[in-house]
């Protein structure tokens, strides 16, 4: 049955990613240490300097650590999305990507499976991070942790699709390092992950505009509201639209007759 073939392939790709992740302990550790340093060191240090007014979804004054937590969840997913794509560039250079692409399944489906596998791993990282944050007294309503799950899936897919799109246009691993600097850092710093929009507006109008339209900001706001069991409709629509756009472009990029492969030969 064809449907079983699709299911086996999805399971196989997700399981492989999970096995690789478990075997690469340092990858798991660094994925966890990065946001925790931001939380314990950066956010604690800036607690006094940055006052946060009452803004939705928060109903009271909050500590800076509480504000920054959804941004750090986004950071975990952003790094994970880019790291998965980095591994795809590596796989392509090393050849194991070929085994995936010569499978008798539509290429768009194989890429979607690969994306989903990366998202699955990022969700595990996020919940471990939130577990540690819980003991640091950053606690959201319990139902928020449940609402967060579908939001993490969508935001993870969007950031993963962006990474996939970048990987489809990058021929060598060395070029990818440059793109990481030009994508990850600007996306993270010019967003609402670290400061709310009104705070950005006070200091710079252009920075405010960039942050407002930055898909990463929208993903972070979507996650922020979900963590408090609320739906930010605008952020949801924006994140979903960005996901579709990035995915379609990535599929074109990996199509042998249209994208990257076409530029290779005729």
């Amino acid at each position: 049955m064809r449907i079983f073939h699709y299911w086996f392939a999805l399971w196989g790709i997700v399981f492989r990613e999970l096995l690789r992740f478990v075997k690469q302990k340092e990858r798991f550790l660094s994925a966890l240490v990065r946001p925790l340093i931001w939380l314990f060191v950066f956010a604690a240090g800036f607690r006094a300097a940055l006052g946060i007014a009452i803004i939705p979804p928060y109903e009271t004054y909050i500590l800076y650590e509480v504000y920054i937590t959804p941004g750090l969840i986004g950071m975990i997913q952003l790094f994970n999305g880019m790291q998965s794509s980095l591994s795809m560039v590596y796989d392509r250079e090393m050849g194991s990507m070929r085994i995936l692409l010569v499978s008798p399944l539509p290429r768009w489906y194989l890429l979607l499976c690969k994306l989903s596998a990366g998202v699955f791993v990022s969700i595990l990282q996020v919940y471990v991070f939130l577990g540690i944050a819980w003991f640091y007294e950053i606690q959201a309503p319990l139902e928020g942790y449940l609402y967060l799950l579908p939001a993490l899936m969508l935001s993870g897919l969007m950031l993963g699709a962006l990474g996939l799109l970048l990987s489809s246009f990058i021929k060598q691993l060395e070029n990818f390092a440059g793109v990481m600097n030009f994508v990850i850092f600007p996306m993270f710093f010019m967003s609402t992950a670290l400061y709310p929009l009104w705070k950005l507006k006070e200091s710079s109008t252009w920075l405010y505009k960039i942050a407002e339209y930055n898909p990463f900001s929208q993903a972070v706001e979507f996650l922020r509201f979900a963590l408090y069991a609320q739906l930010n409709e605008q952020a949801f629509v924006y994140t979903a639209a960005a996901f579709m756009l990035f995915l379609i472009l990535a599929i074109i990029g990996y199509n042998p007759s249209k994208g990257m492969m076409k530029r290779k030969g005729r």
Partner: peptide
Amino acid sequence: TLDLDLSVQQNLRYHAALQG
């Protein structure tokens, strides 16, 4: 094109899954 960090069996199972 094998995954060097996985076992022989895990590599073959991955391929089997891709082939349905």
